[in-house]
């Protein structure tokens, strides 16, 4: 782990990719010109209840699978109890490689690591549920006006102090 940040970026970034996607599928990529004011953290990390929001498509076995083949996407979400066992979860998505997740789900859905941080007293706790959806949604405005607000309301109702939000 000795590379500098600039060296990593120079080798790993994909210049032009975003523009290419938006050229082929106009409006499909989110573009914002404004910045949202930062909400302040109101208590020490060790007292904070953390929630996890993910586009991983991870969901409890037996729940309605995400519609991974709908042409404009699936704007629903699933609740994943934060005390779930990994063997009780499954992935429904088509947009990222699951080579790692198939061996250890924590690489995309670090539910065990988050529970360990609670057990070690690093964070105060977890919300009762984590929240998942799929990343393939071709209408960003619809996502913003429905799915984003639905999940924001849900994590607020669960008393989250911090949201770790992970685009797969």
């Amino acid at each position: 782990m000795t590379e500098s940040s600039s060296e990593v970026e120079a080798r790993q970034l994909r210049p032009g990719l975003w523009a290419t996607v938006n050229e082929r599928y106009p409006g499909s990529m989110i573009t914002k010109s404004d910045l949202v004011p930062l909400a302040p953290l109101r208590k020490p990390l060790s007292e904070c209840r953390v929630t996890f929001i993910s586009t991983s498509g991870v969901q409890p076995k037996g729940t309605l699978p995400f519609d991974t083949v709908h042409p404009v996407g699936d704007y629903t979400f699933r609740r994943v109890p934060s005390d779930s066992r990994i063997e009780d979860l499954e992935i429904h998505q088509l947009k990222y490689p699951t080579a790692g997740a198939d061996r250890d789900l924590n690489v995309i859905f670090p539910i065990e690591r988050l529970r360990e941080l609670v057990a070690d007293g690093v964070i105060g706790g977890l919300t009762e549920n984590f929240y998942t959806f799929i990343g393939y949604n071709m209408d960003p405005e619809r996502l913003e006006s429905t799915l984003a607000e639905d999940i924001a309301a849900a994590v607020s109702a669960e008393g989250a102090d911090i949201a770790l939000a992970a685009p797969a």
């Binding site: 989110i30 914002k32 924001a152 770790l164």
Partner: peptide
């Protein structure tokens, strides 16, 4: 998504593997 949560007073933070997409989504 993060912006909707942040607006409700809950700080958000996101790991990302796609810097260009993140720069646009802000």
């Amino acid at each position: 998504m993060q912006r909707a949560v942040e607006r409700r007073g809950i700080p958000t933070v996101s790991p990302t593997v796609a810097r260009d997409v993140t720069e646009h989504a802000k």
